[in-house]
């Protein structure tokens, strides 16, 4: 049991050695893959476990990045602290994402199904407009820069994004087998029955919302500090929000490894499109097309198509009977 559980640690250690053994291009490509894995598995925490489709996942990414940058630019003390200041600012960016998730849960989680999707997407649009409309604060369409002393090196960014991706996956895996995870499944399968069994729907969803927002916010901070520059189209882009959805769908929504498979596939397509193929079609059109084709033909994703039983079991078991709800003290 424990050996099997520790198994993913081996490739993880190998991956961690990446920056020292792999060519630079590949390291960068992997970094972006880790970012996408983080966002995709964070998205799927709600999308897969709770059936709540957050089309505004990038909101938290952008929030993390902007808060980090604004702190570094506006708080002289942090700026003076150098790398330590960056660390504090980045953690604050993650905290901002978490806190805003706590608060946003109150209005957004009143919405169900399609309306939650619309609401979260509208939130992203609202953030984009706000940033655009407050150029004195946010730099508007010119974006924001931090000074070179705050830059994250490729190695550091690589290791940090790798950790975030691993942590996000671990989070999903733990949740899949935990009491909270079962409560989540119960809420998704049958809200009324879950409520009757004493599961507090709102609380369960709020916790998931926050858990899914925090790593994404930190990822935004790391991404921003690595590139040294952020603007709306980069950190609050529609594609930034859409990619996690597509990655989760391609890989297999609701499966712990689904976002990994999806993110790797999607990044591979991206690299191939940008570097090796001259298609007379813009890239977003291809991704849009992939989303259309996938949701029509393979709504359950690659992984679900390949491996049936074991993964499905990891996901939810059979439609789990709602658990005796009130957390008993152990």
């Amino acid at each position: 049991m424990s050996v099997r559980r520790a198994l993913p640690a081996v490739p993880l250690l190998l991956l961690a050695a990446g920056p020292w053994i792999l060519p630079r291009d590949l390291v960068t490509a992997l970094l972006f893959t880790f970012l996408l894995i983080t966002l995709a598995s964070n998205y799927d925490l709600l999308g897969g476990f709770l059936g709540l489709y957050n089309l505004g996942q990038a909101s938290f990414f952008g929030l993390g990045a902007y808060v980090t940058f604004l702190l570094l630019l506006r708080v002289p003390l942090l700026a003076a602290l150098g790398p330590a200041g960056s660390t504090v600012a980045a953690l604050a960016g993650g905290a901002a994402a978490a806190i805003s998730a706590v608060l946003l849960a109150y209005p957004l989680l009143r919405l169900r199904g399609a309306y939650f999707a619309v609401g979260t997407f509208a939130l992203l649009l609202l953030l984009r407009l706000t940033v655009d409309n407050l150029p004195q604060l946010t730099g508007g369409s010119h974006g924001l820069y931090v000074s070179a002393q705050h830059y994250l090196s490729l190695r550091a960014a690589y290791l940090l994004t790798l950790s975030l991706a691993a942590a996000s996956l671990l989070l999903n895996a733990l949740l899949a087998s935990s009491r909270l995870g079962m409560a989540m499944t119960a809420v998704r399968e049958n809200e009324l029955a879950a409520a009757a069994a004493g599961v507090d729907r709102f609380r369960v969803q709020q916790v998931a919302f926050v858990l899914g927002a925090t790593p994404t916010g930190l990822a935004g901070a790391v991404f921003g500090l690595h590139s040294g520059y952020i603007d709306v189209s980069v950190v609050l882009g529609i594609e930034r929000s859409l990619f996690p959805v597509i990655a989760a769908m391609i890989g297999g929504s609701g499966l712990v490894w689904g976002p990994v498979v999806g993110a790797v596939t999607l990044r591979a397509i991206d690299v191939a499109l940008k570097n090796y193929m001259q298609l007379p079609v813009p890239a977003p059109a291809i991704y849009g097309g992939i989303l259309v084709v996938m949701s029509l033909t393979m709504p359950k994703g690659i992984l679900a198509g390949l491996t049936r039983a074991p993964q499905a079991a990891a996901r939810s078991g059979s439609p789990a009977p709602p658990r005796p709800a009130r957390p008993r003290t152990r």
Binding site: I246, M249, P284, A285, Y287, G288, I290, L291, S295, P299
Partner: peptide, 15 residues
């Protein structure tokens, strides 16, 4: 599923 399909379509057409 109509949201996902038409979202993809929207992006493709727009681009």
């Amino acid at each position: 599923s109509s949201i996902l399909v038409t979202f993809g379509l929207a992006l493709a057409l727009e681009a």
